[in-house]
Design a protein around this nucleic acid. Structure first.
Lengths: 333, 333
DNA sequence: TTGTATGCGTTATCAG
DNA sequence: CTGATAACGCATACAA
């Protein structure tokens, strides 16, 4: 057990020959303190290695400066990218990100939010899973801000950031159709996440309006390996699809690799593939995947900006568009 | 400005008809409290939605439960994976990760450590950059634990976790040599990170012992795009290399894609490639990259375990081995 | 086992 | 502009 010895404002005050209040004011932006006093305080603080105790400050101000990021599968390219953007923009707003990993099922989102409350986080941003209404109500009642990204569910007092998934999926269908594709498939995981389901429904809906039925296959986690399995199932069908829209890029990469290496298909000649997210790998020469870019920086921007605004009682909503990125995995363009 | 209203231990005490201390004891593991009192307290806490204020508790115990992760380029596969492992294992140890992004140069590692001190973090784990000695000394003097991963520099009182980079690089050379390769190259970024340089030196050293000179090329960030440029430089040389060892997998992916698509080379027949890290993409069908796996879980394990041990004054060191993963990008095996 | 009193480091309030 | 004093919510030594 290491007894930590931190230098306090009192130590600085003693050394500088001023009161504790003077020290406090020196480190509070916008407080009135004479140049002479400030100089003495800063000098003493420097010499002693003093740093304001944010725990105590948070206790007083009832504002910790902590923002809780609740997320699973951090190592997924899209998630990692979003976390990067969020942590950067939070820092710009003088806030600091607490990371709560909900990979383990027993560490549920509800527990994570409880932890956020314990640390008196100014806000929580949920990127994975969906918290229970009772716990989100508690957050809001406690005055904690709540942001739900791609969760697509109503929560009193929270900000919901979503994409126009259905519209994007519709555009994907049209692109395939113009490319001369005739047998359409949708490759999905069995996660059942609202945004993934919206893409599936939007794609099928658009096809139906053209009198075309889509083959839907769902399997496993939303990862590369599931894409492999999905491709094996889809490409061994009697009427082999010539267009596969994947719920996200990770699945698409698995589908493309399997189509090429196992089934010896040429992309886009034999098979057109599109994905969603625009992860870095989509632009790699091996894939050149046509996909929809999530506006990651915009999402982070909207979330952080909302945190700076005064609280309103009813729920806010923010709908953003995904940009179609044309690459070589779909003919034409 | 939202005035946050949290329920305090006093509120719970009033409702339960007991003293504040009884409430405190109920939520302090190992404190002596009667079953009857505990029941009343828990009931009242449940009803009111009470959560212990970790800020105040940290203030008292001088132990915040916060551990600071200092890292740049979070969206890189290897980093994201390490962060995932660390955050998970920290949670198992009842600690919580604060993420500090040092992407922006003005947000240096030193500033990050200062922030960690301000939040009275129990420890800081540095994954990127190298803090100044004055600031690490301050950390240690303040009783804050410090872990440096792959930083390869001595710091009083810190734990340094490193890999046997040189030995791994030596094994890479031997593998190439056995595969019949004759013209060796090393593809590095110009980041100059100790671990990257150690791999370069180890590879060159091993070659020198066989009387072979290695062509070394360094360029840009340690990312895919730099791999593209490096391949273009190396593969247009008069004596084209038939073996390229890359400082990490991201560079290797860029090198492989460029060798195949731009230079129409077959891997491993015309060119053998190996990397380092064993990121997920290395196992994808398009790459099948022979590489060295960083023991990510072990690294996280060692770091977290060390945090639970009593502090010692001198510095600790932990050297781990990277495991050679044979795949198809090198002949033989 | 329980309650009372005190202190942790900070900021806000108020008198000077 | 400055200094004293009262909170903030919690844990603990001590007395009961």
């Amino acid at each position: 057990m290491s007894r930590k010895i931190f230098v306090s404002a009192k130590d600085v005050a003693d050394r500088a020959g001023v009161s504790r209040s003077a020290v406090s004011r020196t480190f509070t932006p916008g407080a009135s303190v004479s140049e002479e006093t400030r100089r003495k305080v800063v000098e003493a603080a420097e010499a002693l290695g003093y740093h304001v105790n944010h725990l105590a400050r948070g206790l007083m101000r009832n504002e910790s400066g902590l923002v809780c990021l609740i997320v699973s599968e951090i190592d997924t390219p899209y998630r990692a990218n979003l976390i990067r953007a969020l942590s950067r923009q939070l820092q710009n707003a003088s806030k600091i990100a607490m990371l709560i990993n909900t990979d383990r099922p027993d560490k549920s989102v509800d527990d994570a939010l409880r932890l956020a409350i314990s640390y008196r986080a100014d806000a929580s941003i949920v990127l994975s899973g969906m918290p229970d209404k009772s716990i989100t109500d508690l957050c809001v009642k406690s005055g904690q801000r709540l942001v739900l990204i791609n969760r697509d569910e109503q929560r009193e007092g929270a900000l919901m950031i979503n994409l126009h998934d259905r519209e994007a999926a519709r555009r994907a269908f049209i692109a395939f159709h113009r490319a001369g594709c005739r047998r359409f498939a949708f490759a999905n995981s069995d996660a059942g996440t609202p945004s993934l389901m919206a893409r599936e429904e939007g794609f099928c809906q658009a096809a139906r309006e053209h009198g075309i039925e889509v083959v839907v296959e769902r399997f496993g986690a939303t990862r590369y390996q599931s894409g492999v399995t999905l491709a094996q199932r889809l490409l061994t069908r009697e009427a082999r699809p010539d267009a596969i829209f994947c719920a996200n890029d990770l699945l698409a990469c698995g589908v493309m690799d399997t189509a090429r290496h196992q089934f010896k298909l040429a992309i886009p000649d034999d098979l057109c593939v599109a994905g969603f997210d625009d992860i870095e790998q989509a632009s790699w020469a091996s894939y050149q995947l046509t996909t929809f870019a999530q506006p990651v920086e915009r999402i982070a921007e909207e979330a952080v900006a909302w945190l700076g605004q005064p609280m309103v009682s009813d729920n806010s909503s923010c709908k953003l568009s995904a940009e179609l990125i044309w690459r070589g995995s779909v003919r034409g363009g």
